[in-house]
């Protein structure tokens, strides 16, 4: 019970800080909007390649950009910890009965709120640009759910990296190193059936790809719900594993204190 109270109190703390400096929210939106509108123009003719199964390119791209935004945003989740470590806030929390799991889950809950808000803005822009999803409201709901689960997976990873490295530079370096290959080894901006077969093989093991497939499938005209459920299940399992791993990272932090 206390873990729930702790999670709520710590999530509220981050939301207060967010509401006080809303500029960060806008800044985090600029890049995905550029991706959506620039890639949408740049790669428009991809849809004309024989064998491309995605239909209209912008409609194909939008779920991919939603997931890119969720992943790149989630990569920053651990940055809040590093700020807390640079101050004495982390030491204060760790010498109090605050639940370690609550400390991790609150950062993921906060980041998920950001993902939902940013996805909403992005979808409005996409709609204005002419994107129409056949999957309707339910499909869009599942797309958002997939984005939230992806946020949890990469947010937990970011928390763990922050707790182990304790440095902004290390966190930035590792997330940049991971995020770009993870993004390109997927169908986010390109139909993988048009790429060399090894790309498709790697993509099937990529949690980012699971989210892209689940989201895109959910908003399509003829949704394969079996595939959506399998991919959401895989994401949820990876997320749960991530939370356990990140909570364990507190032990590493304590050993080196």
């Amino acid at each position: 019970m206390s873990a729930v109270v702790h999670t709520a109190a710590l999530t509220a703390r981050q939301l207060r800080a967010f509401l006080r400096v809303p500029a960060f929210f806008a800044m985090n939106l600029v890049q995905p909007l550029i991706w959506l509108l620039l890639f949408g123009q740049l790669f428009r003719s991809v849809a004309q390649i024989p064998g491309f199964t995605g239909g209209d390119y912008l409609t194909f791209l939008t779920p991919g950009v939603v997931m890119m935004m969720a992943m790149f945003g989630a990569a920053w989740t651990g940055a809040g910890y590093i700020q807390d470590m640079e101050r004495g806030v982390m030491d204060r929390l760790l010498t109090s009965p605050t639940s370690r799991t609550a400390m991790i889950v609150s950062t993921l809950a906060y980041q998920s709120v950001l993902t939902v808000l940013q996805t909403a803005v992005l979808l409005v822009v996409a709609w204005t640009a002419g994107v129409r999803f056949d999957g309707g409201a339910v499909g869009v709901g599942v797309l958002v759910l997939a984005a939230v689960l992806l946020t949890v997976v990469f947010g937990a990873l970011s928390d763990a990296v922050a707790l182990v490295t304790r440095q902004h530079n290390a966190l930035i370096g590792i997330s940049q190193l991971l995020a770009f290959p993870v993004m390109f080894l997927s169908s986010a901006i390109m139909d993988v059936s048009l790429a060399p077969s090894w790309v498709g093989a790697v993509a099937r093991l990529n949690p980012f790809e699971w989210a892209v497939v689940a989201g895109r499938e959910a908003v399509s005209a003829s949704t394969d719900w079996g595939s959506v459920l399998v991919h959401l299940g895989l994401l949820a399992a990876a997320g749960a594993l991530g939370v356990v791993a990140a909570t364990a990272a507190f032990r590493v932090y304590r050993r080196s204190a």
Binding site: R16, G88, V89, T95
Partner: peptide, 20 residues
Amino acid sequence: DQVRRAIGLVAQRSVVDPMD
């Protein structure tokens, strides 16, 4: 866990969140 319930820590660096 028992110790943490019984203590308060004022660390060398400030334990206050400047955004709150």
